[in-house]
Simulated scan of single mutants.
Amino acid sequence: MPDQRPPLPPFDADSAARKVLAAEAAWNTRDPERVALAYTPDSVWRNRDLFLQGRAEIIDFLTAKGQRELDYVLRKSLWTFGPDRIAVRFQYEWHDIGGQWWRSYGNELWEFDADGLMSRREASINDVAITESERRIRGPRTETEPVLPLR
């Protein structure tokens, strides 16, 4: 089926970790349309204080995010998983139009349909101002970069 996004539920430790890394790679493209394809057409999101439903709203949200959070780069880490759910910790770094760098920390709860598309995403995020010299994430994950717990 063309709308499947492997790995598919039910998840085990390996497939859940692969799902997390695939999401990280997609978000690091900063391509709203590509990212939105991982979600069901009627996916429900809570992101901070925003409530979204459907791919069109997700694309609009991600487009605005890309205009506000410049040079965004992300790391995700598997926290736990169930048959059709995954919990993730993440952090990402970005700067605003004024040049202030930020590190954003958060947790996401994901629920998937049988085709591996995310039907629900709940995200809680906090931002911490950092200096450019405090940055830890300089670009997308390399193939040799270990997947370590976030600190």
Rank of each mutant, 00 (worst) to 15 (best):
R141P: 04
D96Q: 14
R138I: 14
Q91D: 08
F61D: 01
R75G: 00
A123M: 07
L52H: 02
A26N: 03
V88L: 05
R151F: 12
S104L: 10
P2H: 15
N107W: 03
Q100W: 08
F112T: 00
E122W: 08
L117F: 04
L117T: 03
P41K: 03
W102T: 03
W27E: 01
R121I: 04
L148T: 12
R138Y: 15
D96P: 05
I125H: 04
R103S: 10
W79K: 14
G106T: 06
G54F: 02
R121A: 05
E69F: 04
K65P: 01
P83A: 15
R138S: 15
A16L: 05
R151I: 14
P41C: 08
F90E: 01
F90Q: 02
R103G: 03
N107P: 07
R30D: 07
R85P: 02
E122G: 07
E122H: 09
F112V: 02
I137H: 05
W102I: 07
D71P: 06
L70R: 12
D49K: 10
I97M: 10
D71S: 15
A38M: 10
I97S: 15
E69V: 06
A16Y: 00
A64D: 15
F81G: 00
D115G: 09
R5S: 06
R89C: 08
I130M: 09
R30V: 12
Y72R: 10
V88N: 00
L78E: 01
L70M: 14
L8V: 08
A17P: 03
H95K: 11
F51H: 13
E143W: 14
N107K: 04
L8G: 03
L109I: 12
K19W: 02
I97P: 02
A129E: 14
E111F: 08
L109F: 11
E145W: 09
F81Y: 06
W101D: 04
L109Y: 11
N126W: 12
G139R: 08
K65A: 12
M1L: 14
L62W: 01
D115H: 10
A25C: 11
P6M: 07
E93A: 04
T80A: 14
V128G: 10
T29G: 09
S133W: 11
T40N: 05
L78I: 09
E93I: 02
D14A: 11
L74P: 00
L52G: 02
Q100M: 10
E111W: 07
Y72K: 08
F11S: 01
A25P: 04
P9L: 06
G54H: 05
R75M: 06
K19Q: 08
D3Q: 15
A38T: 04
S43I: 09
A22F: 06
D71V: 11
I97H: 15
R151M: 14
R55W: 06
L70Y: 07
Y72C: 09
P7D: 06
F112W: 02
V88R: 00
T144V: 12
G98K: 13
W45Q: 07
D115Y: 06
L21C: 07
S43C: 15
I59H: 04
V147Q: 01
T63H: 07
E57I: 05
E69Q: 13
V20Q: 01
E108R: 04
S15Y: 06
D96F: 11
P32I: 02
S104C: 12
D127I: 03
A38C: 11
R46C: 05
R141W: 09
R34I: 09
L50S: 14
V128T: 12
A38G: 09
